[in-house]
Simulated scan of single mutants.
Amino acid sequence: MNSSRLLLLACLLVLSGCPEQAGPGKPSGRVEGQVQGPTALRGDAYVFLFAPGEEPPNGPAAPRHVTAVPELRWASGDSRYLFAEVLPGPYRLWGFLDANGDVDLSVDVLAQPGAGDWRPEAAVALDVPVSGRVEQELALTRRMRHGPPAFRVTGEGTDGGVVSVPDSPLALTSLTVEADGLGLLRGEEIRFFVHLLDSDGDGNADDLNGDGLPELFPQFFLRFVPRPGQTGAEDGGGSSIIVPLVLNPLPFVAVLQGDVTREAAAASVQLFVVPQAQAVSVGTDGGQVLTPLAAIPVGEYQLWALTAEGAFWYVPNVLGHRDSESLRSQSLRFQIVRGGSPDAENPAR
């Protein structure tokens, strides 16, 4: 995975959407083939067609088409998939095998591969001709080590359902997040797996943003959710806007010792808000561009967690809308308010 694009992916990735369907009077082709993976495993395999540049892990990921190979067929040796009516043009083919049975494509944070699941090394480029047929194998060769970094926020300021964070650069705001799979994730003990990033495999920790500090994963940030009429960015709203959070490294220094091969498991981590908003966009070379903003947009935010494998979690999410006491933590909202304003309810500490 191209780690320089992880943050952009997390800002934009949603495994849902409205596929552009072919229909009567429209020319269409078909895409079919075999899903190849470890034969000893069982599970449902999901297959997606994305527009170019929108496939994981390179950017926005709203699939144009979705299909599946059910576990019953996979177990019988029949792993063939089919997209019967596809508008002509270029696409990217991607998918994964849900080995643990915890994927739910109707739930935003559960619509992704988790611990023990299998996915391809990269998406496969293909071109669907008019009234033609494309035969393409999808090889699932990479096993996910860890699942989504599911969490809930604890501590002072969370009881009211809204955490308010002042935008003042003089305010030191911290959040405590606890790993919590909510009984929905399988395959491993739910923990944060803290480690240094070495994306190029040279044995040295990476410094992706050039701040002189090695990148520590998982990464956390607040993502601006604009209301109608809001943009918050100088480019008129063409970028996603984030406010970074720094993970307190002190509890992990003795375990990691600067070694990129080491990993520390943690039940909870402490985060500090960096009072500097950034616009995240795609550069001409396809890489990530971070542009500092003059001010932090006031309004609603989501709290995101992202692993080096590209697994993610954010709050609030759709699980918080379910009528379950155990999922109430997933409806917690985040607001950035003007520092010191009287309407700053439930400020975090």
Results as ranks from 00 to 15, higher is better:
residue 1 M to H: 10
residue 7 L to R: 04
residue 7 L to I: 12
residue 11 C to Q: 03
residue 17 G to I: 05
residue 19 P to D: 12
residue 20 E to N: 12
residue 23 G to P: 07
residue 27 P to H: 05
residue 28 S to T: 09
residue 31 V to D: 04
residue 34 Q to S: 13
residue 35 V to T: 10
residue 36 Q to H: 13
residue 36 Q to I: 11
residue 39 T to G: 03
residue 40 A to S: 11
residue 43 G to H: 14
residue 45 A to S: 12
residue 45 A to C: 12
residue 46 Y to M: 09
residue 51 A to H: 14
residue 52 P to K: 13
residue 52 P to G: 12
residue 57 P to A: 14
residue 59 G to Y: 09
residue 62 A to W: 05
residue 65 H to L: 09
residue 67 T to Q: 04
residue 67 T to M: 08
residue 68 A to H: 14
residue 69 V to Y: 02
residue 69 V to D: 06
residue 70 P to F: 03
residue 71 E to C: 08
residue 74 W to L: 13
residue 77 G to V: 08
residue 82 L to S: 10
residue 90 P to Y: 03
residue 91 Y to L: 07
residue 101 G to M: 04
residue 102 D to A: 07
residue 105 L to E: 13
residue 105 L to R: 12
residue 106 S to W: 04
residue 108 D to K: 05
residue 113 P to Y: 09
residue 116 G to N: 00
residue 119 R to A: 15
residue 119 R to V: 08
residue 122 A to M: 02
residue 128 V to Y: 08
residue 130 V to S: 14
residue 132 G to L: 00
residue 132 G to T: 06
residue 136 Q to R: 15
residue 142 R to N: 05
residue 143 R to H: 01
residue 145 R to V: 07
residue 148 P to Q: 14
residue 148 P to S: 11
residue 151 F to P: 02
residue 153 V to N: 03
residue 154 T to A: 10
residue 159 D to Y: 02
residue 160 G to V: 00
residue 161 G to P: 10
residue 162 V to Y: 01
residue 164 S to M: 00
residue 165 V to A: 00
residue 166 P to Q: 04
residue 172 L to M: 03
residue 173 T to Y: 03
residue 175 L to T: 07
residue 186 R to A: 15
residue 192 F to W: 02
residue 195 H to V: 03
residue 200 D to M: 10
residue 203 G to K: 05
residue 204 N to W: 09
residue 205 A to H: 02
residue 206 D to M: 08
residue 208 L to N: 03
residue 210 G to P: 08
residue 210 G to Q: 12
residue 214 P to C: 04
residue 214 P to A: 07
residue 215 E to P: 01
residue 216 L to K: 04
residue 217 F to V: 15
residue 218 P to M: 03
residue 219 Q to Y: 00
residue 225 V to A: 11
residue 231 T to L: 06
residue 236 G to I: 03
residue 237 G to T: 08
residue 237 G to R: 09
residue 242 I to F: 01
residue 242 I to K: 05
residue 242 I to W: 00
residue 244 P to Y: 02
residue 246 V to M: 15
residue 246 V to C: 06
residue 247 L to M: 15
residue 251 P to H: 07
residue 253 V to N: 05
residue 254 A to N: 12
residue 258 G to W: 10
residue 260 V to A: 10
residue 261 T to W: 08
residue 262 R to A: 11
residue 262 R to T: 14
residue 263 E to W: 11
residue 264 A to Y: 09
residue 267 A to R: 10
residue 267 A to M: 08
residue 268 S to Y: 12
residue 270 Q to R: 15
residue 275 P to I: 13
residue 277 A to Y: 02
residue 278 Q to T: 02
residue 280 V to D: 01
residue 281 S to V: 01
residue 284 T to S: 11
residue 284 T to Y: 01
residue 288 Q to H: 04
residue 291 T to L: 01
residue 293 L to C: 01
residue 295 A to V: 13
residue 296 I to S: 05
residue 300 E to W: 06
residue 301 Y to R: 11
residue 301 Y to I: 07
residue 303 L to P: 06
residue 303 L to C: 08
residue 303 L to M: 06
residue 308 A to D: 15
residue 312 F to G: 02
residue 314 Y to C: 04
residue 314 Y to R: 14
residue 315 V to M: 12
residue 319 L to N: 07
residue 320 G to Q: 06
residue 323 D to C: 02
residue 323 D to Q: 13
residue 323 D to R: 09
residue 325 E to R: 13
residue 326 S to Q: 04
residue 331 S to A: 15
residue 333 R to D: 02
residue 335 Q to V: 05
residue 336 I to L: 02
residue 340 G to F: 00
residue 344 A to Y: 02
residue 346 N to M: 00
residue 347 P to V: 06
residue 347 P to T: 01
